[in-house]
Simulated scan of single mutants.
Amino acid sequence: MRPLIRWVICLAVALGVGAGGYVLLKDDEPFTVYRYQAMCEKPQGFDQAAPRAASGPRPVFVYGFWNVRDESPELFDPAALDVWDPTDPAKVQLVACVDKVGRGDFVKSCTYEPDPFGIPGGGDFRSDLYKATYRVTVYEARTGRRLASSEFAGDRFRPEKTPQAEPCPRTALTHDKGPRFEQREADPYIQQIRDTLQPHVTG
């Protein structure tokens, strides 16, 4: 079988926008937790995974919009971090795939006045904000069996870690010759993903 090269997208949130980093893995390299992202491309069983326990906690590898150790470690105590963001692939029992599947409700129009200092990009600008629909699908890591799937509305537009009353970012960056209008779809909060997965991980 010819070697397969897989790209793993490690998503973070910066200034309210998901940022991506990439890790290049080859099949002949040591098995790491990042290999479990292949479940989100094609469900399959992994002999390297631990059997799913009858009760929690069940360590879960989450693929997509999940950067808890760098961004939101305060949501978990140190022991819980090893459950929600395991580093040992042999302890993983579940794989969760987080995907954006559609645009949600309109939230608000954010308007920005011309930049008073004449910085390129100044000028009237409007950003229409929409929620986005995200699907979380949970698989048994050892067998590839699909256990559950549920959807929720992501509504994160700003870098704050918890929902805010005011969704409009404080500033907007544009190009001086670019369009004066944009439409933005929200990211999910890590807390939303955690709450969706809670029954499967700790139940």
Results as ranks from 00 to 15, higher is better:
Leu147Val: 08
Pro167Val: 11
Asp124His: 13
Ala90His: 12
Lys131Glu: 15
Ala165Trp: 05
Gly144Tyr: 10
Arg103Ile: 12
Tyr130Ser: 10
Tyr134Val: 01
Glu113Asp: 14
Val136Tyr: 09
Arg156Gln: 13
Ser109His: 06
Thr143Tyr: 12
Leu94Thr: 06
Pro114Arg: 07
Tyr134Ser: 12
Ala90Leu: 02
Gly118His: 00
Ser150Gln: 13
Gly144Leu: 04
Thr111Phe: 06
Phe152Trp: 09
Lys161Met: 08
Asp128Gly: 10
Gly121Cys: 01
Tyr134Met: 15
Gly154Trp: 05
Ile119His: 08
Leu147Asn: 02
Phe106Leu: 01
Pro116Leu: 03
Gly121Pro: 03
Lys108Thr: 11
Asp128Val: 08
Glu160Tyr: 06
Glu151Thr: 15
Gln93Tyr: 04
Glu151Leu: 09
Val107Gly: 01
Thr162Val: 09
Val107Ser: 02
Asp128Ser: 12
Ile119Ala: 09
Lys100Met: 14
Asp105Ile: 05
Glu113Ile: 12
Thr133Cys: 11
Pro159Gln: 05
Phe106His: 13
Leu147Arg: 04
Phe106Pro: 01
Gly122Gln: 08
Asp128Cys: 10
Val101Glu: 06
Gly104Ser: 03
Lys100Glu: 13
Tyr139Ser: 06
Gly121Ser: 07
Glu113Ala: 14
Ala153Lys: 13
Leu147Pro: 02
Lys108Asp: 05
Asp128Ile: 08
Gly121Thr: 07
Phe152Leu: 10
Ala153Thr: 11
Leu147Cys: 05
Tyr139Leu: 13
Thr143Leu: 06
Arg158Leu: 09
Asp115His: 13
Asp99Tyr: 08
Pro167Gln: 02
Glu151Ser: 13
Arg156Trp: 03
Leu129Tyr: 14
Thr111Val: 11
Arg103Phe: 07
Lys100Asn: 10
Ser109Thr: 15
Gly123Asp: 07
Glu113Lys: 14
Pro114Asp: 12
Gly121Ile: 04
Thr133Ala: 10
Arg135Tyr: 03
Ile119Leu: 14
Val92Asp: 00
Arg145Ser: 13
Arg142Glu: 15
Arg126Pro: 00
Arg142Met: 13
Pro163Arg: 00
Gly121Lys: 04
Ala141Gln: 01
Leu94Trp: 10
Ala90Tyr: 01
Glu160Lys: 02
Glu113Gln: 12
Asp128Glu: 15
Val136Lys: 09
Glu166Pro: 00
Asp128Asn: 15
Thr137Phe: 04
Val138Ile: 13
Cys168Leu: 06
Ala141Ser: 05
Gly104Cys: 01
Gly123Leu: 03
Gly122Val: 03
Leu129Thr: 08
Ala96Met: 04
Val98Pro: 08
Gly123Pro: 05
Gln164Cys: 07
Gly118Pro: 05
Gln93Leu: 03
Gly154Thr: 08
Thr137Arg: 12
